[in-house]
Structure formats: C-alpha cells, structure tokens
Design a protein around this nucleic acid. Structure first.
Lengths: 224, 224
DNA sequence: GCCGCCCTTAAGAAAGGCTTAAGAAGTGCC
DNA sequence: GGCACTTCTTAAGCCTTTCTTAAGGGCGGC
C-alpha cells in the first residue's frame, strides 16, 4: 500500500556553509527543507510560512539563535524548535530551552538521533494507523475509508481523507481555509479548493460531517 | 495582574530507591510529584489521573519503560514524556523517542537541564480563545457558538457573538447603545441596530440573556 | 392617556459559501 | 510508451447567510 504521506516542512537556520547543506541533505528524505543562512532570513521565513519544525543554530550572524527564538515565541509562533549547537554547557542548554526551544542537541551530533528527536517533535499523537472517530463515523487512515456504525464502507481519495483527518484531529477547533490549504494542499492561494473538498466529503459521507463557521472556516465535532 | 499559578503535576516512574526520591526532591519546588516504583504502578497512575508530564526510567522491573510508553500512546495518552536512563547509545535514544517519548536524557544528568527540558515540555504556547460564561450559558468565540449545560449548540453570527461577548465581558455593567455601536458596528448613527441584535440573541438563546435598562441601555448578569 | 422608548418584523444589499463542470495531472495496466 | 481511469485543481455562476436599514406596533413611566 502506498500511504499518502506528507513530508513535514522543516526550516533549518544554519550559517555554516558546509554544515548547513550537509544537514539538509541528511534530512532530505524525510522533510521538505528550507535553509536560511542567518537569523534575519530565518525570522522572515519563520513568520511568513508555516512549518512543522525548525532546527536552529545557536550562534548565528546578524541575529543570534536565542534572539530568533525569543522573537518567534513572543509573536505566538508555536512551531517545535530544536537547537543544534556546539555550546554544550548545562547553563547554555537551560538558556536555550527557556528561551522557547523544545529540544537541544550539541555538535558533533548523530544524524540518527537528530532524526529521532525531530520525529518526536513533529509527531502528532493521533497515530496514523489508529482509526479516528467523527461522531457516528470512523475514519481508517490506512485504507482511507470511512464507515458509519451500521452503514456501508465509503472510500475516500487521499485529499479527502487528509482533510477529514485534519479536521477530526482537533474536534471543535475551527480551521481557516488558509490553515488547511497550507498544511495539506500544495495548491496556490486558492482557498476555494477547500470548499470543493468539503463538498465532496459532505456528498460522500453526510451533509453534516463538517460544520461551516461563516466567515471563518470549517469545524468538526465539539471541543472535548 | 496576579497570575493564578498551578504547579504542574508530574508522574515519575523510577525504580531506584535512592534516585527516585532524589529526583522527586530536586523537582519538588516546581512540580507536584508522584513517584511510581515500577511500570505497572506507573501505567495505572498514568491512565487513571491526568498529568502535565511524565519522567520515565528506561529499565524498569515488571514492565519496561518502552513498553509502558507504548501502552500509553496506544491508548491515546498524549502527555509529554521524558525518558531518563543510563542507556546512552544512539540507537537506544532512537528507540526510546520512536516509542513515543518526547525527550531523552542520560544519567548521570544535570538537575538544571532536567528542569529546563521539563519546562520546555510542559510549556503551552496556545493561550487560545477562552470560552466565556454567561450564567448557564457558555460562549465559544472560536466557533461562535453558545451552549447551555445540557442544551443544544446554538451558532451565532459574527455580530451576534460580538455583541454577546462585549456585554458578557463586564457582567453587571450597563452599556449604552452608543457605546456598543461605536465599538462593534461600523453602522451609521443608528442605535436601532443594537436593538435588532439584542432581539436576535434573545430569540436564539433565551429571552432573559440580556436585560434592558430602560432609558439607558443593555446589561448581562450581575456585578462580581 | 400621552409620550418616549423598546420590540418586532421585514426587505434590500453585500458578503460569503455551495455546486458544478471541465481541463490538468497523476497512476496503473497493457 | 500509449491508453484508460482516477484524482486534483481551477474557475465561474448561483444560492444562502448575514448585515443594515427602516417602519409600525406595543409597552412602561409619568
């Protein structure tokens, strides 16, 4: 089976001309990587796009890694951040983590451990293999199919399942079209795509699976 | 402002009779700590109570740390978990993180770093929109819906929710139409708009949500 | 009972959402 | 590689909801 898998996006901020591309290459198979070579570029990229995780060097030209993280967190950016640096002293680690980083690794580092720590950071605890329930319906991401308690099995396309899964991952939360678009569709700035897929879901499953919040976006279920 | 601060709860699963109490004591100032001395106790405690974080030893009697984490994650428990262990090999780290842990530290460890990593794990970056309560009703600004304790979900339009939220923000205060108008409606000098929306609210929610103060304006609830 | 204020209703305008359809891109099979 | 099929993307027109305005009737205070 070919699991439709979205490679997570990763922003790498690393000024070392050798190390940067090297890390990028190491992680390439699992991530869509963008490399910024200084803090300012990093800040700009971090703010203008959404990322699944960031790997940030501690000592950066123009804008220090700690300052960069502080700037992001103060603006409400909650993306997981891993600091990768040569500074290994405990108080350096404490400072980095308290600035808002989620993990801290020291150079020289092991590529396998970096990858594992990134997986831990980007993991969502709705394991992909476990069925997700949406009211009376149950979505099995593995087979991309939905079935109601006694109803027939409805099979969905990759995008349909992805959209449904995203909405169902946080019941009660209202997602804007832009959020859904940037995370699950490579499409251009065309929020209308979402409408189309919502329509598909409603037709295939039930008119009431997805609730519209007029002027805001879409929502499934109620908050816990 | 005096931030009401709750010490986070921490489940520590550690079989070492010396190290367990020691770690507990180290973290005591910042956390409400419960110590489990084997995996089974840990699993039971993890499932029957809610925790802000867990620190789990890798090598545990009865039930191994990895197995414990696996059991928790497969049951949908998403509490942040930090593995603390003597096993420092990279593939051990990878195994631990991939089992579902969020961070991995090796003994001997630095107390300051442990504390910093725990802070990073328990930190929340989503202060999100907080539901507002109005008597028996609760308004969720994100989905613009109102529900009573056991009643049905009522969805409001943007303006309705805005007006209700404004009134509910200061219970007992009487707002004049002009105040409400200038703050929430771009409409011209037409105080009648407010009347219309108050009517909508009363129809959708309950006749008595909003109280009229004759000759002055509108009001919700009583002063605190 | 009179006056002023409030409630209710309704309808036009604007904004946003739904539906449809058709071409493009991707996938698997021969 | 070519063909058939599914899925994805784009776009346009129609429909629904929401906002705003307005006017008539009802109610309370004096």
């Amino acid at each position: 089976m070919t699991t439709e898998y979205r490679r997570p996006s990763l922003l790498l901020v690393e000024d070392d001309a050798v190390l940067g591309p090297l890390i990028a290459e190491l992680l390439e198979p699992g991530y869509r990587i963008t490399l910024a070579i200084n803090g300012q570029d990093g800040l700009h990229l971090a703010l203008t796009q959404t990322w699944d995780a960031m790997v940030i060097d501690r000592g950066l030209p123009v804008m220090d890694g700690i300052a960069l993280i502080g700037a992001l967190r103060s603006k409400g950016v909650s993306t997981p951040i891993l600091i990768l640096t040569a500074l290994g002293a405990t108080d350096e680690k404490v400072r980095g983590l308290d600035a808002g980083a989620n993990d801290y690794m020291t150079k020289p580092f092991d590529a396998g451990e970096l990858a594992a720590r990134l997986r831990a950071l980007t993991r969502t605890f709705t394991p992909a293999a476990v069925p997700v329930s949406i009211g009376d319906w149950e979505l099995d991401p593995a087979s991309r199919s939905v079935r109601s308690v006694y109803g027939p099995l409805v099979s969905l396309t990759a995008k349909e399942a992805e959209l449904l899964g995203a909405l169902a991952a946080e019941p009660g939360r209202v997602f804007t079209r832009e959020e859904l678009l940037s995370e699950h569709f490579q499409a251009a700035d065309q929020p209308g795509v979402i409408d189309t897929y919502v329509h598909h879901l409603r037709r295939k499953i039930s008119k009431s699976v997805v609730r519209t919040v007029h002027g805001v976006g879409y929502q499934i279920g109620d908050a816990p």
